[in-house]
Design a protein around this nucleic acid. Structure first.
Lengths: 149, 149
DNA sequence: GCCATGTAAATGCAACTGCATCTATTTGGA
DNA sequence: TCCAAATAGATGCAGTTGCATTTACATGGC
């Protein structure tokens, strides 16, 4: 059995810690402002991008890389909070169309400065633009091409 | 409100995806072999390092960067699986000493090749040693010095 | 010695995730 | 047409996490 280079283990550790720290930072900022979780942001943004046409949950799950049940339940919560509407689609009795409400749009907008601020503080202020580009390049080497939704 | 550089957002996204992909890879490997979660590995390793003296839960929580209740419950599960012993300490009636059992040692040992193999496949085989070093350097810039346990 | 304060650890409750399964509907063939 | 297989989405259940609180013990000042 091959033993990994200590640098490999360290990379995994620092990668994990970094992403953990960033996530915590963003989430605690949102929570401190009484705003929903980060996962809601991505969903709201995708739904907002879909515009008046709305989006089907199965499309959403592909874009958010969430499991089907995760999407279903996330939509439950977001709908319960009044941020989206879900209505049946006539062309397919199994499906539904999700659309953002005004409140949903407002919520997403309110989340953005907090989210962005955290990223600036936690990333942008700590690393130079060229290093940032290099970091991106290296991370993309590690993460294989997403397996085509 | 300052707007973050798109590269910053992309770095956050790739960082998150990379760490998610690695975590999933390691976890699914362990699960496929009928082994416990990765979080158990770290705990078992720390406890093993403590040797015959054992370790106090509050020390463990500092080393693992876990919340107090998380540590308490992790130890519950690990103890229920027979991988550790917990006994009261005489010098401090509030505390306990955690020690690894033989079974705990065996389990940790069994986990390592799977864990290591996943790291080799997912990281080491995809990036050169010098790039790995650079990745480490960049990640350490982003993650601030841990706030001294 | 007594009490306020602090520290170690556990726990009730709500939220969330994973897994498997279920229901409803559509689709593609024989 | 009819039925097996596929697809969209929901859901029961167990496990896990976060938060707040609780229990138990220790310590320092008076």
């Amino acid at each position: 059995m091959t033993i990994p280079d200590p640098h490999t283990v360290e990379a995994w550790t620092s990668l994990f810690r970094a992403s953990q720290a960033l996530l915590d930072g963003v989430e605690s900022g949102l929570k401190a402002h009484g705003l929903p979780q980060l996962s809601w942001y991505d969903a709201l943004l995708e739904i907002e991008k879909a515009g008046a046409d709305g989006i089907r949950p199965f499309e959403l799950k592909e874009r958010l890389l969430l499991p089907q049940y995760g999407t279903s339940r996330l939509l439950d919560r977001v709908a319960k909070a009044g941020l989206i509407t879900r209505e049946d689609v006539e062309t397919d009795g199994r499906g539904q169309i999700v659309r953002l409400t005004e409140k949903g749009r407002d919520t997403r907008k309110a989340m953005w400065p907090i989210y962005a601020g955290a990223l600036i503080t936690l990333i942008q202020s700590r690393i130079s633009p060229s290093e940032l580009a290099e970091l991106n390049r290296l991370l993309h080497k590690i993460t294989p091409a997403r397996p085509k939704a």
